[in-house]
Protein backbone atom coordinates (compact mmCIF):
# COMPACT_ATOMS: atom_id res chain seq x y z
CA UNK A 1 0.00 0.00 0.00
CA UNK A 2 2.64 2.51 0.99
CA UNK A 3 4.80 1.22 -1.88
CA UNK A 4 2.01 2.28 -4.20
CA UNK A 5 1.88 5.77 -2.66
CA UNK A 6 5.62 6.21 -3.10
CA UNK A 7 5.45 4.72 -6.60
CA UNK A 8 2.81 7.25 -7.61
CA UNK A 9 4.78 10.14 -6.15
CA UNK A 10 7.97 9.14 -7.95
CA UNK A 11 6.15 8.62 -11.21
CA UNK A 12 4.51 12.03 -10.92
CA UNK A 13 7.93 13.51 -10.24
CA UNK A 14 9.37 11.86 -13.38
CA UNK A 15 6.54 12.94 -15.63
CA UNK A 16 5.89 16.30 -13.98
CA UNK A 17 9.37 17.39 -14.98
CA UNK A 18 11.27 17.12 -18.26
CA UNK A 19 13.37 14.16 -17.00
CA UNK A 20 11.26 11.27 -18.25
CA UNK A 21 10.39 12.94 -21.56
CA UNK A 22 13.98 13.83 -22.34
CA UNK A 23 15.15 10.31 -21.64
CA UNK A 24 12.34 8.68 -23.60
CA UNK A 25 12.91 10.94 -26.61
CA UNK A 26 16.67 10.34 -26.59
CA UNK A 27 16.13 6.62 -26.21
CA UNK A 28 13.72 6.50 -29.14
CA UNK A 29 16.00 8.60 -31.32
CA UNK A 30 19.06 6.52 -30.53
CA UNK A 31 17.41 3.13 -30.80
CA UNK A 32 15.71 3.96 -34.10
CA UNK A 33 18.77 5.76 -35.45
CA UNK A 34 21.05 2.83 -34.69
CA UNK A 35 18.55 0.32 -36.04
CA UNK A 36 18.29 2.06 -39.39
CA UNK A 37 21.95 3.05 -39.74
CA UNK A 38 24.41 0.56 -38.24
CA UNK A 39 21.70 -2.04 -37.77
CA UNK A 40 21.03 -2.09 -41.51
CA UNK A 41 17.39 -2.72 -40.76
CA UNK A 42 16.23 -2.18 -44.33
CA UNK A 43 18.97 -4.19 -46.05
CA UNK A 44 19.34 -7.35 -43.95
CA UNK A 45 15.74 -8.27 -44.56
CA UNK A 46 15.54 -9.95 -41.17
CA UNK A 47 12.19 -9.64 -39.42
CA UNK A 48 13.34 -10.96 -36.03
CA UNK A 49 14.66 -7.59 -34.75
CA UNK A 50 17.38 -9.50 -32.89
CA UNK A 51 20.43 -7.88 -34.46
CA UNK A 52 19.04 -4.75 -35.98
CA UNK A 53 17.03 -3.51 -33.00
CA UNK A 54 17.52 -5.28 -29.65
CA UNK A 55 21.26 -5.58 -30.13
CA UNK A 56 21.66 -1.84 -29.47
CA UNK A 57 19.63 -1.70 -26.27
CA UNK A 58 22.31 -2.62 -23.72
CA UNK A 59 24.61 -0.03 -25.31
CA UNK A 60 22.00 2.68 -24.91
CA UNK A 61 20.94 1.56 -21.43
CA UNK A 62 24.45 1.62 -20.07
CA UNK A 63 24.47 5.39 -20.60
CA UNK A 64 20.82 6.31 -20.11
CA UNK A 65 19.52 3.99 -17.37
CA UNK A 66 21.66 5.67 -14.69
CA UNK A 67 20.15 9.02 -15.70
CA UNK A 68 16.75 7.72 -14.66
CA UNK A 69 17.88 6.17 -11.38
CA UNK A 70 20.44 8.68 -10.17
CA UNK A 71 18.06 10.89 -8.25
CA UNK A 72 16.23 8.10 -6.45
CA UNK A 73 18.10 8.26 -3.14
CA UNK A 74 20.71 10.96 -3.66
CA UNK A 75 18.01 13.63 -3.94
CA UNK A 76 16.24 12.22 -0.93
CA UNK A 77 19.44 12.53 1.09
CA UNK A 78 20.32 15.97 -0.15
CA UNK A 79 16.88 17.46 0.47
CA UNK A 80 16.72 15.73 3.83
CA UNK A 81 13.37 14.21 2.87
CA UNK A 82 14.80 10.85 3.82
CA UNK A 83 14.16 12.03 7.38
CA UNK A 84 10.47 12.31 6.56
CA UNK A 85 10.38 8.89 4.93
CA UNK A 86 12.30 7.43 7.86
CA UNK A 87 9.79 8.75 10.38
CA UNK A 88 6.64 7.89 8.44
CA UNK A 89 5.09 4.61 9.55
CA UNK A 90 6.38 2.77 6.47
CA UNK A 91 9.26 0.38 6.07
CA UNK A 92 12.29 1.40 4.04
CA UNK A 93 11.52 -1.62 1.89
CA UNK A 94 8.27 -0.28 0.59
CA UNK A 95 10.05 2.94 -0.35
CA UNK A 96 12.80 1.02 -2.14
CA UNK A 97 10.30 -1.12 -4.06
CA UNK A 98 8.12 1.87 -4.95
CA UNK A 99 11.04 3.89 -6.25
CA UNK A 100 12.51 1.00 -8.21
CA UNK A 101 9.20 0.22 -9.88
CA UNK A 102 8.66 3.88 -10.78
CA UNK A 103 12.03 4.07 -12.53
CA UNK A 104 11.35 0.77 -14.29
CA UNK A 105 7.99 2.14 -15.43
CA UNK A 106 9.70 5.04 -17.17
CA UNK A 107 11.65 2.47 -19.18
CA UNK A 108 8.56 0.41 -19.81
CA UNK A 109 6.95 3.52 -21.29
CA UNK A 110 10.01 4.09 -23.47
CA UNK A 111 9.92 0.51 -24.72
CA UNK A 112 6.19 0.58 -25.40
CA UNK A 113 6.76 3.64 -27.56
CA UNK A 114 9.03 1.64 -29.88
CA UNK A 115 5.90 -0.19 -31.14
CA UNK A 116 6.16 1.27 -34.70
CA UNK A 117 9.16 -0.97 -35.36
CA UNK A 118 7.10 -4.04 -34.43
CA UNK A 119 4.28 -2.85 -36.65
CA UNK A 120 6.79 -2.31 -39.44
CA UNK A 121 8.27 -5.81 -39.35
CA UNK A 122 4.79 -7.29 -39.20
CA UNK A 123 3.80 -5.25 -42.22
CA UNK A 124 6.93 -6.06 -44.21
CA UNK A 125 7.41 -9.67 -43.27
CA UNK A 126 6.23 -12.50 -41.12
CA UNK A 127 8.21 -12.36 -37.88
CA UNK A 128 7.98 -14.60 -34.84
CA UNK A 129 6.14 -12.26 -32.51
CA UNK A 130 6.81 -14.53 -29.55
CA UNK A 131 10.53 -14.02 -30.09
CA UNK A 132 10.00 -10.28 -30.30
CA UNK A 133 8.10 -10.32 -27.01
CA UNK A 134 10.95 -12.30 -25.43
CA UNK A 135 13.33 -9.68 -26.79
CA UNK A 136 11.31 -6.95 -25.12
CA UNK A 137 11.27 -8.85 -21.83
CA UNK A 138 15.04 -9.27 -22.04
CA UNK A 139 15.48 -5.61 -22.85
CA UNK A 140 13.34 -4.54 -19.88
CA UNK A 141 15.26 -6.90 -17.62
CA UNK A 142 18.59 -5.43 -18.71
CA UNK A 143 17.52 -1.85 -18.04
CA UNK A 144 15.84 -2.81 -14.76
CA UNK A 145 19.13 -4.36 -13.70
CA UNK A 146 20.95 -1.15 -14.57
CA UNK A 147 18.35 0.92 -12.73
CA UNK A 148 18.78 -1.31 -9.66
CA UNK A 149 22.55 -0.81 -9.80
CA UNK A 150 22.07 2.96 -10.06
CA UNK A 151 19.70 2.88 -7.12
CA UNK A 152 22.33 1.08 -5.03
CA UNK A 153 24.92 3.71 -5.98
CA UNK A 154 22.50 6.56 -5.29
CA UNK A 155 22.06 5.28 -1.74
CA UNK A 156 25.79 5.78 -1.21
CA UNK A 157 26.01 9.41 -2.26
CA UNK A 158 24.01 12.61 -2.03
CA UNK A 159 25.61 13.88 -5.21
CA UNK A 160 23.73 13.00 -8.38
CA UNK A 161 26.73 13.57 -10.66
CA UNK A 162 28.92 11.18 -8.68
CA UNK A 163 26.09 8.67 -8.76
CA UNK A 164 25.71 9.04 -12.53
CA UNK A 165 29.41 8.60 -13.26
CA UNK A 166 29.90 5.62 -10.98
CA UNK A 167 26.78 3.83 -12.21
CA UNK A 168 27.64 4.43 -15.86
CA UNK A 169 31.09 2.97 -15.20
CA UNK A 170 29.56 -0.14 -13.64
CA UNK A 171 27.00 -0.56 -16.43
CA UNK A 172 29.60 -0.07 -19.17
CA UNK A 173 31.73 -2.76 -17.55
CA UNK A 174 28.76 -5.11 -17.46
CA UNK A 175 28.03 -4.54 -21.14
CA UNK A 176 31.64 -4.90 -22.26
CA UNK A 177 32.25 -8.04 -20.21
CA UNK A 178 30.66 -10.77 -22.21
CA UNK A 179 30.74 -8.86 -25.47
CA UNK A 180 32.55 -11.16 -27.88
CA UNK A 181 35.08 -8.75 -29.40
CA UNK A 182 36.07 -7.55 -25.97
CA UNK A 183 36.40 -10.96 -24.37
CA UNK A 184 38.42 -12.24 -27.34
CA UNK A 185 40.99 -9.51 -26.73
CA UNK A 186 41.03 -10.22 -23.00
CA UNK A 187 41.32 -13.95 -23.77
CA UNK A 188 44.69 -13.38 -25.42
CA UNK A 189 46.10 -12.11 -22.14
CA UNK A 190 44.49 -14.25 -19.45
CA UNK A 191 43.52 -17.87 -18.90
CA UNK A 192 40.15 -19.21 -20.11
CA UNK A 193 38.90 -19.52 -16.51
CA UNK A 194 39.29 -15.79 -15.96
CA UNK A 195 37.55 -15.03 -19.24
CA UNK A 196 34.65 -17.20 -18.19
CA UNK A 197 34.42 -15.33 -14.91
CA UNK A 198 34.42 -12.01 -16.75
CA UNK A 199 31.76 -13.19 -19.20
CA UNK A 200 29.56 -14.32 -16.34
CA UNK A 201 29.17 -10.79 -14.96
CA UNK A 202 28.26 -9.46 -18.40
CA UNK A 203 24.67 -9.10 -19.54
CA UNK A 204 25.03 -10.51 -23.07
CA UNK A 205 24.88 -14.18 -22.31
CA UNK A 206 21.49 -13.74 -20.65
CA UNK A 207 20.16 -11.06 -22.93
CA UNK A 208 21.02 -12.92 -26.11
CA UNK A 209 19.14 -16.09 -25.34
CA UNK A 210 16.02 -14.09 -24.50
CA UNK A 211 16.61 -12.16 -27.66
CA UNK A 212 16.46 -15.35 -29.67
CA UNK A 213 13.11 -16.04 -28.13
CA UNK A 214 14.44 -18.48 -25.58
CA UNK A 215 12.95 -18.01 -22.12
CA UNK A 216 15.46 -19.84 -19.97
CA UNK A 217 14.92 -20.15 -16.25
CA UNK A 218 18.59 -19.45 -15.55
CA UNK A 219 18.40 -16.05 -17.25
CA UNK A 220 15.31 -15.06 -15.33
CA UNK A 221 17.04 -16.14 -12.13
CA UNK A 222 20.20 -14.25 -13.04
CA UNK A 223 18.40 -10.96 -13.69
CA UNK A 224 16.00 -11.16 -10.75
CA UNK A 225 18.69 -12.19 -8.29
CA UNK A 226 20.94 -9.39 -9.51
CA UNK A 227 18.11 -6.89 -9.00
CA UNK A 228 17.24 -8.38 -5.61
CA UNK A 229 20.86 -8.12 -4.46
CA UNK A 230 21.00 -4.45 -5.49
CA UNK A 231 17.76 -3.65 -3.66
CA UNK A 232 18.95 -5.50 -0.57
CA UNK A 233 22.22 -3.61 -0.76
CA UNK A 234 20.31 -0.33 -0.99
CA UNK A 235 18.37 -1.15 2.15
CA UNK A 236 21.56 -2.17 3.98
CA UNK A 237 23.38 1.01 3.00
CA UNK A 238 20.47 3.25 3.93
CA UNK A 239 20.09 1.73 7.37
CA UNK A 240 23.86 1.70 7.93
CA UNK A 241 23.96 5.41 7.06
CA UNK A 242 21.35 6.20 9.67
CA UNK A 243 23.22 4.55 12.52
Amino acid sequence: MSSLTIYKRELRSYFGQPTAYAIIVIFLALSMGLTFSFGNFMRVGDASLEWSFFFWHPWIYMLLAPAVGMKLWSDEQRNGTIELLGTFPVSMWSAIIGKFLAAATVWLAALVLTFPIVATVNYLGDPDNGAILAGYIGSLLVCSTFVAITMLVSACTRDQVVCLIVSVAICVTMVLCGYDDFTREIGKAVSPGVVEAIVSIGVWDHFRSLNRGLLRLQDAVWFTSFIAVCLLGTSTILSAKRS
Binding site: R12, G80, T87
Partner: peptide
Protein backbone atom coordinates in the same frame (compact mmCIF):
# COMPACT_ATOMS: atom_id res chain seq x y z
CA UNK B 1 12.76 17.89 11.20
CA UNK B 2 15.23 20.70 11.73
CA UNK B 3 15.77 21.54 8.07
CA UNK B 4 12.04 21.31 7.25
CA UNK B 5 12.67 19.01 4.28
CA UNK B 6 10.15 18.91 1.42
CA UNK B 7 9.90 17.56 -2.11
CA UNK B 8 10.57 20.70 -4.15
CA UNK B 9 8.88 19.38 -7.29
CA UNK B 10 5.46 19.06 -5.64
Amino acid sequence: PESAPLYPDM
